[in-house]
Design a protein around this nucleic acid. Sequence first.
DNA 1: TCGCATTTGAGAATAATTCCTAAATGGAAA
DNA 2: TTTCCATTTAGGAATTATTCTCAAATGCGA
Lengths: 147, 147
Amino acid sequence: MEITNQVKNQLSEAGLKATHPRIVVLRELVVSNDHPTAERIHENIKIDNPSISLGSVYRVLDVLVDAGLIQRVSVRSGSKRYDANMSPHGHLYCLQTNKIQDFYDEELYELINEFFRKKRIRNFKINEIKLQVNGERIDPDAEITIT
Amino acid sequence: MEITNQVKNQLSEAGLKATHPRIVVLRELVVSNDHPTAERIHENIKIDNPSISLGSVYRVLDVLVDAGLIQRVSVRSGSKRYDANMSPHGHLYCLQTNKIQDFYDEELYELINEFFRKKRIRNFKINEIKLQVNGERIDPDAEITIT
DNA sequence: TCGCATTTGAGAATAATTCCTAAATGGAAA
DNA sequence: TTTCCATTTAGGAATTATTCTCAAATGCGA
Ligand SMILES: [Mn+2]
Ligand SMILES: [Mn+2]
Ligand SMILES: [Zn+2]
Ligand SMILES: [Zn+2]
C-alpha cells in the first residue's frame, strides 16, 4: 500500500517511531477529508484494527499534533476535530450539520500573512493563524460551493 | 451603579428577563477583559453573589451567546472562554500562559469581509468570522504590544 | 398585587479527555 | 539476526468540562 509507506516516512522524518497505532491513525486522517473526531477515527479504524484503544487514538493524535503532522480544529459542539491537511486553508463550519469544509484562497492567506509580517507584534512568536467561518448550510445535504 | 443599568438595558433590549444571575454574569464579562472561563466567572462573582450556582453561570452564558450579547472563544486547553467585546476583532492566544489578548485592525477586517463578500459562497449563510493567532509569549509576564 | 411562564439552585448525569501501570514492541546496536 | 531497552500501548480508572433534571423561586406584564 502506497499511502502506508508515505505515512511511515512522515513519521520517521518527524523523528517518531513508526508504531502500528500511529501509522493507522495518521493514514486514516490522510485518506479522510471530513475532519473526524478522535472517537470517529477510532470507530473507522477498529474494523481492521480491533486492538487499538480509544486512549491510544487520543495519545497518538496528540503526538501527531505536537510533531506538526496534523492539526486540531476546535468548533462549538462537543469534541475536537482533526485534519491532516497542513497547507494554509480556512474552515467553513456548519453549526447545524456539524460539517467542516476546507476553503483555500492563496490571495487571502497572502493578505493575512502580509498583515502580520508588517504589523510588529512584540513579545509573541506566532505559531499558527486560524481562520474559521461559522454559519449554516441552507440545504444541509448539499455541498457548499465557492466561486 | 451605571454599568448595572447599562447591562439591564442590554438584556431587555435583547428580549431577555433581567434576572439577577444574568445581570451579574454579563456585568462581570463587561468589566473584565481577560476572556474568563465559566468557572472563573463563577469564582469572581460568588464573593458578592454566593447563591448563583455554576450551572446557572453555564446556562446564562449560553443564553447570552444565543442573544448575541457575548461570544464564545475556544482555544486549545480545557475550557471555553467568554468575551463581551462584540466589535470585530481577533485573538492572540498564548499556548504557555493561556492568556487571550484582543487585537483590532479595521483594515484587516475590511479585507476579510470584502473577501467574503466578493467570493460567492453558495449554500452557506455566514454567521461569524473568527481569526485566532496562536503562539507563545517570549516573556510570559509582559504584555504583547502591536504597532 | 397577582399569576404564571420562565428561570434558578443543587446536585446528578453525561461527554470528552487524560492518567495510570503492567505488558508489548520498534528499531538501534551488536 | 538476535538482543535489549527506552518508548509506546491497551485497558480501565480518574478527572474535567458541561449539560440535564426538577422542585422552588422570581421577574414582569396585566
Ligand atoms: Mn500536546
Ligand atoms: Mn446555545
Ligand atoms: Zn481542514
Ligand atoms: Zn476578545
